[in-house]
Protein backbone atom coordinates (compact mmCIF):
# COMPACT_ATOMS: atom_id res chain seq x y z
CA UNK A 1 0.00 0.00 0.00
CA UNK A 2 1.34 3.42 -0.83
CA UNK A 3 1.66 5.90 1.98
CA UNK A 4 -0.83 8.75 2.23
CA UNK A 5 1.97 11.20 1.68
CA UNK A 6 3.26 9.79 -1.59
CA UNK A 7 -0.32 9.29 -2.80
CA UNK A 8 -1.13 12.95 -2.59
CA UNK A 9 2.23 13.87 -4.07
CA UNK A 10 1.72 12.83 -7.67
CA UNK A 11 -1.64 14.46 -8.21
CA UNK A 12 -0.62 17.64 -6.44
CA UNK A 13 2.59 17.88 -8.40
CA UNK A 14 1.00 17.66 -11.84
CA UNK A 15 -2.19 19.58 -10.99
CA UNK A 16 -0.08 22.31 -9.45
CA UNK A 17 1.88 22.53 -12.68
CA UNK A 18 -1.40 22.94 -14.61
CA UNK A 19 -2.25 25.95 -12.46
CA UNK A 20 1.22 27.29 -12.92
CA UNK A 21 0.78 27.23 -16.72
CA UNK A 22 -2.70 28.81 -16.38
CA UNK A 23 -1.24 31.78 -14.50
CA UNK A 24 1.38 32.24 -17.16
CA UNK A 25 -1.29 32.35 -19.84
CA UNK A 26 -3.19 34.99 -17.83
CA UNK A 27 -0.11 37.19 -17.99
CA UNK A 28 0.15 36.83 -21.77
CA UNK A 29 -3.51 37.72 -22.21
CA UNK A 30 -2.97 40.85 -20.13
CA UNK A 31 0.13 41.81 -22.12
CA UNK A 32 -1.60 41.22 -25.45
CA UNK A 33 -4.49 43.36 -24.26
CA UNK A 34 -2.28 46.20 -23.08
CA UNK A 35 -0.10 46.06 -26.20
CA UNK A 36 3.08 45.72 -24.12
CA UNK A 37 5.06 43.97 -26.83
CA UNK A 38 8.39 44.49 -25.01
CA UNK A 39 7.47 42.11 -22.19
CA UNK A 40 5.37 39.85 -24.40
CA UNK A 41 8.30 38.01 -25.98
CA UNK A 42 9.79 36.80 -22.69
CA UNK A 43 6.38 36.02 -21.17
CA UNK A 44 5.46 33.98 -24.23
CA UNK A 45 8.69 32.01 -24.10
CA UNK A 46 8.14 31.32 -20.44
CA UNK A 47 4.59 30.06 -21.05
CA UNK A 48 5.53 28.07 -24.14
CA UNK A 49 8.43 26.37 -22.40
CA UNK A 50 6.51 25.61 -19.21
CA UNK A 51 3.66 24.05 -21.16
CA UNK A 52 5.92 21.92 -23.33
CA UNK A 53 7.94 20.94 -20.28
CA UNK A 54 4.76 19.72 -18.60
CA UNK A 55 3.79 17.66 -21.63
CA UNK A 56 7.28 16.17 -21.88
CA UNK A 57 7.34 15.23 -18.19
CA UNK A 58 4.11 13.34 -18.63
CA UNK A 59 5.01 11.65 -21.88
CA UNK A 60 8.55 10.69 -20.96
CA UNK A 61 8.20 9.84 -17.27
CA UNK A 62 4.64 9.55 -15.99
CA UNK A 63 2.90 7.82 -18.88
CA UNK A 64 5.53 5.11 -19.49
CA UNK A 65 5.61 4.28 -15.77
CA UNK A 66 1.81 4.21 -15.64
CA UNK A 67 1.52 2.08 -18.76
CA UNK A 68 4.09 -0.40 -17.48
CA UNK A 69 2.48 -0.72 -14.06
CA UNK A 70 -1.18 -0.74 -15.10
CA UNK A 71 -0.69 -2.85 -18.21
CA UNK A 72 -2.75 -0.28 -20.10
CA UNK A 73 -0.70 0.66 -23.11
CA UNK A 74 -2.36 0.83 -26.51
CA UNK A 75 -5.93 0.97 -25.23
CA UNK A 76 -5.41 2.98 -22.08
CA UNK A 77 -6.16 6.57 -21.18
CA UNK A 78 -2.66 7.74 -22.07
CA UNK A 79 -3.36 7.21 -25.78
CA UNK A 80 -5.96 9.98 -25.87
CA UNK A 81 -3.83 12.15 -23.60
CA UNK A 82 -0.86 11.87 -25.96
CA UNK A 83 -3.06 12.78 -28.90
CA UNK A 84 -4.32 15.87 -27.12
CA UNK A 85 -0.75 16.82 -26.22
CA UNK A 86 0.05 16.88 -29.91
CA UNK A 87 -2.91 19.16 -30.51
CA UNK A 88 -1.75 21.46 -27.71
CA UNK A 89 1.75 21.65 -29.21
CA UNK A 90 0.39 22.45 -32.66
CA UNK A 91 -1.78 25.22 -31.23
CA UNK A 92 1.24 26.66 -29.42
CA UNK A 93 2.99 26.78 -32.81
CA UNK A 94 0.04 28.56 -34.36
CA UNK A 95 -0.09 31.14 -31.56
CA UNK A 96 3.64 31.77 -31.87
CA UNK A 97 3.12 32.59 -35.56
CA UNK A 98 0.27 35.00 -34.72
CA UNK A 99 2.34 36.73 -32.02
CA UNK A 100 5.30 36.92 -34.38
CA UNK A 101 3.12 38.55 -37.02
CA UNK A 102 1.76 41.04 -34.47
CA UNK A 103 -1.79 39.74 -34.97
CA UNK A 104 -3.08 40.39 -31.45
CA UNK A 105 -6.71 39.39 -32.03
CA UNK A 106 -5.74 36.11 -33.65
CA UNK A 107 -3.30 35.37 -30.84
CA UNK A 108 -5.96 36.10 -28.21
CA UNK A 109 -8.60 34.00 -29.96
CA UNK A 110 -6.26 31.06 -30.49
CA UNK A 111 -5.10 31.44 -26.90
CA UNK A 112 -8.71 31.23 -25.75
CA UNK A 113 -9.07 28.09 -27.84
CA UNK A 114 -5.92 26.60 -26.34
CA UNK A 115 -7.27 27.46 -22.92
CA UNK A 116 -10.54 25.60 -23.57
CA UNK A 117 -8.71 22.61 -25.02
CA UNK A 118 -6.29 22.35 -22.10
CA UNK A 119 -8.97 22.85 -19.47
CA UNK A 120 -11.07 19.94 -20.68
CA UNK A 121 -7.85 17.94 -20.98
CA UNK A 122 -6.88 18.85 -17.41
CA UNK A 123 -10.26 17.77 -16.03
CA UNK A 124 -9.69 14.33 -17.47
CA UNK A 125 -6.15 14.15 -16.13
CA UNK A 126 -6.92 15.56 -12.70
CA UNK A 127 -10.19 13.70 -12.27
CA UNK A 128 -9.17 10.33 -13.66
CA UNK A 129 -5.64 9.78 -14.80
CA UNK A 130 -3.73 11.19 -11.82
CA UNK A 131 -5.84 9.36 -9.23
CA UNK A 132 -5.39 6.14 -11.22
CA UNK A 133 -1.66 6.79 -11.51
CA UNK A 134 -1.46 7.46 -7.80
CA UNK A 135 -3.12 4.12 -7.19
CA UNK A 136 -0.63 2.15 -9.21
CA UNK A 137 2.52 4.26 -8.84
CA UNK A 138 2.29 5.34 -5.21
CA UNK A 139 5.41 3.47 -4.18
CA UNK A 140 7.49 4.62 -7.10
CA UNK A 141 6.63 8.27 -6.75
CA UNK A 142 9.77 9.32 -4.89
CA UNK A 143 11.90 7.73 -7.57
CA UNK A 144 9.84 9.27 -10.39
CA UNK A 145 10.09 12.66 -8.78
CA UNK A 146 13.86 12.46 -8.99
CA UNK A 147 13.61 11.75 -12.70
CA UNK A 148 11.32 14.77 -13.10
CA UNK A 149 13.81 17.02 -11.36
CA UNK A 150 15.95 17.27 -14.49
CA UNK A 151 13.16 18.89 -16.54
Amino acid sequence: MASQHSESGLSDFFSGDHHNCDSKWVRIEALLDSGDSASLGTAWQDFDQSTRRHLDMEEEVLFPAFEARSGMGQSGPTVVMREEHQQIRALLDQIAVAIGAGDTEEALDLGDTLHMLTQQHNIKEEGMLYPMAEDVLGEEWTELKQKLAIY
Partner: peptide
Protein backbone atom coordinates in the same frame (compact mmCIF):
# COMPACT_ATOMS: atom_id res chain seq x y z
CA UNK B 1 -14.41 22.77 -32.85
CA UNK B 2 -13.47 19.80 -30.69
CA UNK B 3 -15.23 17.20 -32.82
CA UNK B 4 -14.62 18.61 -36.28
CA UNK B 5 -11.40 20.61 -36.13
CA UNK B 6 -9.06 18.88 -33.69
CA UNK B 7 -8.19 16.21 -36.25
CA UNK B 8 -6.90 19.00 -38.50
CA UNK B 9 -4.64 20.67 -35.94
CA UNK B 10 -1.02 20.49 -36.90
CA UNK B 11 -1.90 19.65 -40.50
CA UNK B 12 -3.12 23.14 -41.32
CA UNK B 13 -3.99 26.45 -39.69
CA UNK B 14 -7.25 25.90 -37.85
CA UNK B 15 -9.69 28.69 -36.95
CA UNK B 16 -10.19 29.53 -33.28
CA UNK B 17 -13.35 28.69 -31.34
CA UNK B 18 -14.28 32.36 -31.38
CA UNK B 19 -13.72 32.26 -35.12
Amino acid sequence: WFHRLTPLIGKMRVPSIRG
